[in-house]
Amino acid sequence: MTKPRTLLALNWKMNKTPTEAKAWARELAHGYHRGEVELAVMAPAIDLPGLKETLPGGVDVGAQDVSQHESGAYTGEISATMLREVNATYVIVGHSERRQYHNETDAVVAAKARQAQAGGLTPIVCVGESLDVRERGGHVDFTLDQLRASTEGVGPELVVAYEPVWAIGTGRTATAQDAEEMAAAIRGALEGLYGDQAGSIRVLYGGSVKPDNIASICAGPNVNGALVGGASLNVADVIGMNDALK
């Protein structure tokens, strides 16, 4: 099996005004050298108009959430079609922060992923366990159950991001062996869901990824990149991660 192209999905979370986003993009253009790695900036929706044009060539943009509805009376929500029109290629669904703070269920995540695909976006479906689940040894079963429920009715044109909740924004990072173990288990589950197409689905690791650990984390045969949080806000860190994966 040929390993899919490595993807760095840069999740800015609730950071950067439109002015700050363009300044970041211009700074990236000065030091970025396009290589084997695909970069995608997952920016707040308000930053997306115009961001693609400011970024260096070949860098994609995406959103951090999408409505599970196509259109209608859903105040404050943003549809996949709207995001596609402002140049989004990807959208994150089911991030642990959405699950925790907005009570998103696996069924809601699956509905959002289906809408993303219907609107021409590639969903990045996030799954992962809490610390107590890992400590009692149930992390593989928990994550795979979450994956199956969060991809109900979703086609194979997706990305999966494994983000152990205990490693997000805490400074704690799963080891390269931890990341590969779970990515291999996810790959096996994807084979059960999508057959031969599973080999082309990228599996990312997310959780305190930095320039000094990204190469080892992505070295495993089943880890195809990273969903990067805090380090994505600093251009030097992004360039460092990109260069580390050349």
Rank of each mutant, 00 (worst) to 15 (best):
A113M: 05
A113E: 04
A113L: 03
A113R: 04
A113W: 04
R114Y: 14
R114W: 15
R114S: 15
A116L: 06
Q117H: 05
Q117K: 08
Q117L: 10
Q117I: 12
G119E: 08
G120Q: 05
L121V: 02
L121P: 00
T122D: 04
T122L: 05
P123Y: 01
P123R: 04
I124L: 01
V125N: 02
V125A: 00
V125K: 01
V127F: 01
G128P: 01
L131A: 13
D132Q: 14
V133Q: 06
V133L: 06
V133K: 08
R134S: 07
R134E: 04
R134C: 06
R134D: 05
R134T: 04
R136H: 12
R136S: 12
R136E: 08
R136Y: 09
G137L: 14
G138H: 14
H139M: 09
V140C: 10
V140M: 09
D141P: 10
F142S: 11
F142C: 09
T143C: 10
L144K: 01
L144D: 00
L144P: 03
D145G: 07
Q146D: 12
Q146M: 13
Q146E: 14
L147Q: 03
L147V: 04
L147R: 02
L147E: 02
R148I: 15
A149K: 09
S150P: 03
E152G: 08
E152P: 01
E152W: 11
E152K: 14
G153P: 06
G153L: 06
G153S: 07
V154Q: 07
V154L: 08
V154D: 03
G155S: 14
E157C: 12
E157Y: 09
E157F: 10
E157R: 15
E157D: 15
L158W: 02
L158H: 02
L158Q: 01
V159G: 03
V160H: 03
A161R: 05
A161E: 02
E163R: 13
E163I: 09
P164G: 07
V165K: 05
V165N: 01
W166Y: 05
A167C: 11
I168Y: 00
I168V: 11
T170H: 12
T170Y: 12
G171M: 10
G171P: 06
G171I: 14
G171E: 04
R172F: 06
R172L: 14
R172G: 09
R172S: 12
A174D: 01
T175R: 10
